Measured scan of single mutants.
Amino acid sequence: MDEEYDVIVLGTGLTECILSGIMSVNGKKVLHMDRNPYYGGESSSITPLEELYKRFQLLEGPPESMGRGRDWNVDLIPKFLMANGQLVKMLLYTEVTRYLDFKVVEGSFVYKGGKIYKVPSTETEALASNLMGMFEKRRFRKFLVFVANFDENDPKTFEGVDPQTTSMRDVYRKFDLGQDVIDFTGHALALYRTDDYLDQPCLETVNRIKLYSESLARYGKSPYLYPLYGLGELPQGFARLSAIYGGTYMLNKPVDDIIMENGKVVGVKSEGEVARCKQLICDPSYIPDRVRKAGQVIRIICILSHPIKNTNDANSCQIIIPQNQVNRKSDIYVCMISYAHNVAAQGKYIAIASTTVETTDPEKEVEPALELLEPIDQKFVAISDLYEPIDDGCESQVFCSCSYDATTHFETTCNDIKDIYKRMAGTAFDFENMKRKQNDVFGEAEQ
């Protein structure tokens, strides 16, 4: 370990593993360490099931009705991949897709007046949907046509809207959309967690709705994908990429100290040895004095023996409960997957309800979601602090990732990755940087 590296990475969460992969592909010498004996950090999948019970201090362990412990891979952080989103792009560019198998999530649902409705995925579904009345549908269709044709580089498509100054509230007004449709559009399509976006320039919202539609167009059922064997497969896929390009991995490796000289990182000390480096990437748990708390998320993992009611017996789905429907500031989400994804025993389902904490009784906040899941065989409640770095790391060369937020997709995580890359490399992130180099010394032969 007593060696000189360009970059040392602490923690094998998804953000850290993707950055480690990119740095290795770009010719950097990388050492990647984790104090845990497993990959994934906060974003790991726990197996066998006995391990999950232990982690949540349920000492009696799983009953026999849960089947074989080894058949379970339970995500600690519930997220899906947008089919046309940035993480899929990263997987394709790096060819990490060859280590993973994905399934399309069967449906996306939205909560309205105590019931759940399928988010329409085709024009026919939209016309048949009970989510809105006849005239509302016509106006909504006009709005969707506007979004589909919108091109930020072609003012002819703006229809009198200025993407940089017109607020989204004004765009909704222009198409005369009612409150329910606005809730549905902002939260189930643009996937905002709160209503803060309404008074911001509309460009980002329009682009988010386009991303949803384009992702949906790829597979038809929903815009989301999920990897077989759980999300823990993602960091491992990128760790393989890093290793192929010469990255060194050490799990179960305690970090005793991060060594600084004149305010700059110069190395990491572990078990009496020092590895030197020019730059350091880590998750917040490794540098508690360089991060601040930015809120909390509650996630309740529920094991069920039945599909969720009114989802047409889907073996995977997402449910969004827009905040307006339950008098909150932030949406509540449910991600459900099952034995069909090799993450649970035969006939079992895993539904994870999550939201940003707003009160001193977080469990009560998630109740509307839990009511949709009854009866629940077993619950595991996790309340996590969200951390963000206190500075950009440019001076110390210590670059810290943000905690995983309450969103049900990876777009915010990818933004964090691109942002850290830019601060480390001094140049904007470009997907081309992730391409495997042809015929290089570490390149794998085609399968």
Rank of each mutant, 00 (worst) to 15 (best):
T413S: 03
E388A: 08
I319L: 09
D2V: 04
K437E: 10
V206S: 02
D289L: 02
T427R: 06
V105M: 09
F109Y: 04
R292E: 08
L81Q: 00
Q86L: 14
K210W: 04
K142N: 08
I352R: 06
R139G: 12
I300S: 05
A294P: 02
E367K: 07
Y349L: 13
T413I: 05
E123D: 06
Q296P: 04
V334T: 03
G107C: 08
D71K: 12
M336I: 10
S338D: 14
V266T: 15
A128K: 04
S65L: 11
R70P: 12
M66A: 01
F56H: 14
K28R: 09
V7D: 01
F442M: 15
K142L: 00
S20M: 08
E125V: 06
I46M: 05
H187Y: 08
E273A: 11
N315W: 12
D180G: 10
V171L: 09
D151N: 09
R35K: 12
S242N: 02
A314D: 04
N26S: 09
P62S: 09
D430E: 01
E444I: 15
V9E: 00
K437Q: 12
R138H: 13
P322H: 00
D196C: 07
K329Q: 05
I258F: 09
G27C: 10
V357I: 02
Y38N: 00
I383G: 03
E123V: 13
P322F: 01
K364H: 14
R139H: 08
F109C: 05
K264M: 01
A428Y: 14
Y5T: 04
T122A: 09
N26E: 11
P362A: 09
P155N: 09
R208I: 13
K269R: 12
F238L: 04
G41L: 08
D419V: 08
R55S: 06
S108E: 15
E3R: 00
Q397P: 03
N415S: 10
G267P: 09
N207F: 03
F140L: 07
K253T: 12
S285T: 07
N327P: 04
Q397R: 10
T359N: 00
I300N: 06
T407A: 09
F158P: 14
S213W: 14
N252Q: 13
E371W: 07
R276P: 10
K112W: 13
R138S: 06
R292V: 03
Q323V: 03
C414L: 12
F140S: 02
N415K: 06
V105Y: 01
F399P: 02
A217S: 07
D6Y: 00
A406S: 02
R98Y: 15
V161G: 04
L191N: 15
D385Y: 04
Y421K: 13
K89H: 13
K221M: 14
C400D: 01
I308S: 01
A243Y: 15
A148G: 08
H32Y: 01
D289N: 09
D331Y: 02
L49P: 05
K89I: 06
L10A: 04
I303T: 08
N312H: 13
K364P: 15
F431G: 02
Q179P: 12
T97V: 15
T427V: 06
P78H: 00
N130A: 00
S316Y: 00
I77S: 08
E432N: 14
L10R: 03
I46V: 11
D257T: 15
N36T: 07
Q378R: 12
V30L: 05
C282V: 15
K422A: 14
V265D: 12
K269F: 01
V119K: 02
D405S: 14
W72R: 03
E16N: 02
K364I: 09
Y249S: 01
R169C: 07
P155F: 00
L373W: 02
I308F: 09
I337F: 09
A148V: 05
L144S: 00
Y333F: 15
T427L: 14
C17V: 00
V326I: 11
N73G: 02
Y117D: 09
M424E: 15
T248R: 11
M424T: 11
T356P: 10
K253D: 14
G232E: 00
C17H: 04
Y286S: 08
K422M: 13
V343F: 15
R169P: 03
D195A: 09
E411K: 04
A445C: 15
K329R: 11
V88A: 11
L211W: 07
S316N: 10
V104T: 09
K142S: 02
G21D: 06
D6I: 04
E214R: 04
G186R: 02
H341L: 09
A445P: 13
P63L: 09
E446W: 15
L59W: 01
N262G: 12
D416G: 11
G263D: 09
N327H: 11
L198M: 00
G295V: 07
E204K: 11
M168T: 07
A445F: 11
K118Q: 09
L251M: 01
D151H: 05
G21H: 13
V366A: 10
D440V: 00
R290I: 10
K422Q: 13
V104M: 07
D440G: 10
I287T: 09
K221Q: 08
P368Q: 00
A351N: 15
S24T: 07
D2M: 05
G272D: 15
R193H: 11
N36I: 01
E233Q: 06
G21C: 09
M134L: 15
I352E: 12
N26L: 05
R423S: 00
E42D: 08
T122S: 12
I350R: 04
D101A: 08
F158L: 11
Q438K: 00
C302G: 11
A294E: 08
Q346Y: 13
N252V: 01
T97P: 08
I258V: 11
C277G: 04
D75H: 06
H32Q: 03
N310E: 09
T359A: 06
K435P: 15
D419N: 13
I303A: 13
A445T: 08
K54E: 12
S213F: 15
E123G: 10
Y39L: 08
R240E: 15
G230N: 15
T12N: 00
I209W: 03
T15I: 12
G21S: 08
Y226H: 07
L59V: 04
V441L: 07
V104E: 08
Y111V: 05
M168H: 00
N415T: 09
L373E: 03
R139C: 08
A275T: 08
L189I: 13
T407D: 15
G263C: 07
P37T: 04
K364Q: 13
V366E: 00
K309W: 09
K269W: 13
A217F: 13
D392E: 12
L304K: 01
V265S: 15
G85R: 02
M66L: 12
L19I: 14
H32P: 03
D170Y: 10
V266E: 10
L92S: 15
I18R: 14
Q325W: 10
R173C: 14
L373P: 07
T15H: 14
V105L: 04
G230W: 14
V326A: 11
C302W: 02
L14H: 00
E395S: 14
T47I: 07
N84K: 06
I77F: 03
D391G: 08
I300F: 07
Q86P: 04
C317P: 01
Q397G: 00
H32L: 01
F102S: 04
G114I: 06
H32D: 14
K112R: 11
F429R: 15
F135V: 11
E64A: 03
I287A: 15
E444G: 11
L228T: 15
E95V: 05
N439E: 15
P235R: 00
D2W: 01
Y212I: 09
R276N: 14
S121L: 08
S108G: 09
L127P: 06
T355I: 04
G186S: 06
D289E: 06
S305R: 01
D361V: 12
E60K: 07
Y111E: 13
S222N: 05
M90F: 13
Y404R: 10
G393A: 12
E214W: 02
V441Y: 15
Q438H: 05
Y172Q: 12
G267R: 02
S167I: 05
S242V: 02
S330W: 05
D183H: 11
Q279G: 04
L14S: 13
F109V: 01
G21I: 14
K210G: 07
G267Y: 10
A369R: 03
W72A: 03
A275Q: 14
